Amino acid sequence: RLDTVGEEPPTPAPLVHARPPRATALTSVWRGVGTCEPEDVVANRLDPWHGAWFHPYSFVDLTVVEAPGQSTPPDGDGDRFVVDVSFRLTGRLVVPVRAEFTAPGPRTVVMRITEGEGTGSVVESHATPLGPDPNGRPRTAVVEAVLATSDRPGFPLARRLAPALRPLMRAAAGRLWRDDLAYAERRARLRARGLFPG
């Protein structure tokens, strides 16, 4: 709830979008704090083009195939980004997927794999204002939840190995967010100096 920090009226209940069933998903949560506003975090997540050049260790062959307003899909919701991207597992081993980015709330971005390996998997990125630090600079908590699913026969074994896999999943998220929080913090500094609109 953001009654005081965000000065917003509370909703009756948390807004939760469609997720894979927890009983059949491999889950992990990463949390970090940046010196920026939630809008800087959301701007980062809604800039799919930065993935390939800012995170070459994780993404290759990224193409934005649809941007908001370019089409009206069967579900009627054209307010999304759709990207074709390959996730780098090791040096030359990559997994191509199609992913959809939406913003179901003002401080939440959801990436859902819609085609390819792990279809139905979801990554939720939440940005929550924490109020100013002792120097008056804004601080934002980033909480990212990964809910991975797969119809491969070996996936139930991966779920049984979840206690060993979660630290690796958190480390991978932390590596990405180290760069992404630097992006968000730089955007906040530029805006504070009047060099960036906002």
Rank of each mutant, 00 (worst) to 15 (best):
A188T: 03
T108D: 13
F155S: 05
P96T: 15
H126Y: 15
D47E: 08
A43H: 09
E115L: 02
R112S: 15
P153V: 09
R178I: 04
T72Y: 01
T114S: 12
E100K: 12
A162R: 07
W53T: 08
T102N: 14
L181V: 04
R1E: 12
G69V: 03
D79L: 06
E117G: 06
F155M: 06
N135A: 14
S150T: 01
R186E: 09
V83P: 04
E115K: 05
T11S: 10
V83F: 02
D84P: 04
R139D: 00
P138D: 05
D133G: 10
E100F: 07
N44C: 11
S150L: 00
A162S: 12
G76K: 01
V146K: 01
G76Y: 05
R159M: 05
D75L: 01
L157M: 12
V94Y: 01
T72P: 04
G32C: 08
R178A: 11
V146T: 00
G118R: 00
P156N: 06
M169N: 10
L93P: 05
A23Y: 03
M169R: 03
T119F: 11
G6F: 03
P20T: 13
P74Q: 04
V85P: 04
S28M: 01
F155A: 00
C36Y: 03
S121P: 10
V16C: 14
